[in-house]
Design a protein around this nucleic acid. Structure first.
Length: 480
RNA sequence: GGCGGCGUAGCCAAGUGGUAAGGCAAGGGUCUGCAAAACCUUCAUCCCCCAGUUCAAAUCUGGGCGUCGCCUCCA
């Protein structure tokens, strides 16, 4: 089976062939650490986390690097406002990032280089660009001379003559020292009270784009397999990375350029500048982290994704279905007494289906349909077991389905925990539950339904659900 | 103005020439004091519009409309 992926560079789907299989080098443009991350950042992190994990499952040896931009105007502004240092700000939000990611079950990258720790590589790259005539210095600033790089625009499909300066309405007037409006800064001279680093061009700091070129080269080599990021980075950020790296090495920076779509709110991109963002923290206070993962994975990674409370609620219900399937084995494995050897051909065939779906440009939504089928089936059998004490399938079949479900869900980073069951069972014992159920039965027989409902609600608060089965028997089970 | 993406049920979404997966929501039924849970069941004659190619198109081609992103802060 072939894995195909949509390459922004060619605007088409291509068969994935790494430079040195089975090794795969991936680089993802990370965040600028000046504030808490929002759902849009979460989308990027979750999508590429799952891509990485899928590639590993497919047998690739993946090295995954994600950077932090820890020097930048926004960080400096915040430091000034809070009367602290740039380092303190970036460190704080990098730590917050790690906390958020852990809660979303995003696995750590293999390394997180920071701009301020990559200065040697950055300066070397700028120096080489100068040597080759791609960079020029003015008043302590160093700029990249875009018109010298003939492939400029190949990623974003732009031509130099079409570049309309200021069309986005955000032109920085102070950059009048540039030779041409589309040139961009490689090194910025330091303003009087700003943190700065020594360089051959005087005290200053790196431009935004150069750090990624330097880090990729330092940590992964001259041509990597996959370069990823949000699609708002295609131009100018990734275009400029290509210009910087390829001018120096003469080799393609990346074979495949993958970009995820934006999260939208009321039809508009979620962003800091529009102020229409929800932080991951706020979201996690309201929704299950796994529901958030599901929300993101159910959408095609390249398409825009609308954030609404309604959608998150819907997906939370969906998550409960999956979670019930995932907890099936935890709850029933002892009753079902799984001792038989796994039916490998069954597991293999489901995995093949999953693979076939996801191989097509990381179609996780289609893959999820397979998980839902397994989970619904298991949920049904679990309910049969709880309500009627029997199943309609053999315990071997159920075991195979459960193991397959857990295995596939793991790839997507979807994990259900039965902690709640344990925690709640400490609050009330089974014999206490039995006593209360008897009291309720007595009350109901005396037609004292008010008292009966009170006991039912009481138990509900303790995490116990009652089922009034036929024949006047009340069964119960822990919620989860 | 330039470049790129997208347009499938109430919502999300799969589908890559052979007659519309899956999820959520909703409706009906069984059970029930009610509820919850569970189980059964219904839900696009049709894929933005128009033309074309084909025995056959949601899928390919051309045109149109709508929508989103980027055009130097961006995930």
């Amino acid at each position: 089976m072939n894995l195909t992926l949509y390459n922004t560079l060619t605007n088409q789907e291509e068969i994935f062939i790494p430079v040195n299989p089975p090794k795969v080098n991936m680089y993802c443009c990370g965040i600028t650490a000046y504030d808490y991350c929002h759902l849009g950042h979460a989308r990027t992190c979750i999508v590429w986390d799952v891509v990485r994990s899928y590639l590993i499952w497919r047998g690739y040896e993946v090295k995954y690097i994600q950077n932090f931009t820890d020097i930048d105007d926004k960080i400096l502004n915040r430091a000034k406002n809070e009367n602290t240092t740039m380092e303190a700000i970036s460190e704080r939000f990098i730590q917050a990032y790690f906390e958020d990611m852990q809660r979303l079950n995003v696995k750590p990258a293999d390394a997180y280089p920071r701009a301020t720790h990559a200065l040697d590589g950055i300066k070397k790259l700028i120096w080489e660009l100068e040597q080759k005539g791609y960079a020029y210095e003015t008043q302590g600033d160093v700029y990249y001379s875009v018109s010298k790089f003939k492939d400029y625009g190949k990623l974003s499909g732009r031509k130099l003559e079409d570049l309309q300066t200021g069309a986005s309405g955000r032109v920085n007037q102070s950059e009048a020292v540039k030779q041409e409006s589309f040139d961009f800064a490689l090194w910025k001279s330091a303003k009087p009270d700003e943190p700065s680093f020594d360089s051959p061009w005087g005290k200053g700091r790196p431009g935004w784009h150069i750090e990624c070129s330097a880090m990729v080269r330092d940590m992964l080599g001259e041509t990597i397999d996959i370069h990823m990021g949000g699609n708002d980075l295609i131009f100018p950020h990734h275009e400029n990375e290509i210009a910087q790296s390829e001018a120096v090495t003469g080799k393609p920076l990346a074979r495949y350029w993958l970009h995820n779509g934006m999260v939208k709110v009321d039809g508009e991109k979620m962003s800091k500048s529009l102020g229409n963002f929800v932080t991951i923290r706020d979201l996690l206070a309201k929704y299950d982290p796994m529901a958030i993962r599901l929300f993101i994975l159910q959408a095609n990674y390249r398409k825009p994704l609308d954030f609404t409370d309604e959608a998150l609620k819907a997906v939370t219900n969906g998550w409960h279905t999956l979670a019930e399937g995932l907890l099936f084995g935890v709850k029933y494995r002892e009753i079902l007494n799984w001792t038989e050897k796994a039916n490998l051909s069954f597991i293999k065939s489901v995995q093949d289906h999953f693979c076939q779906a996801v191989d097509h440009d990381f179609n996780f939504a289609a893959g999820l349909a397979i998980l839902f089928e397994l989970a619904k089936d298991l949920r049904k059998e679990g309910n049969l077991l709880t309500h009627e004490g029997k199943t309609s399938q053999s315990s071997q079949e159920l075991g195979d389905k459960w193991h397959t479900l857990v295995n596939l869900a793991q790839i997507l980073g979807l994990e259900a925990h039965s902690n709640e069951i344990e925690n709640i069972s400490n609050v009330i014992t089974e014999s206490e539950i039995e006593v209360l159920i008897q009291q309720r039965l007595d009350a109901r027989q005396a037609k004292n339904y008010q008292e009966g409902d009170r006991i039912r609600d009481l138990l509900k608060d303790k995490g116990v659900t009652l089922i009034d089965a036929s024949g006047g028997i009340t069964k119960w089970h822990w919620n989860n």
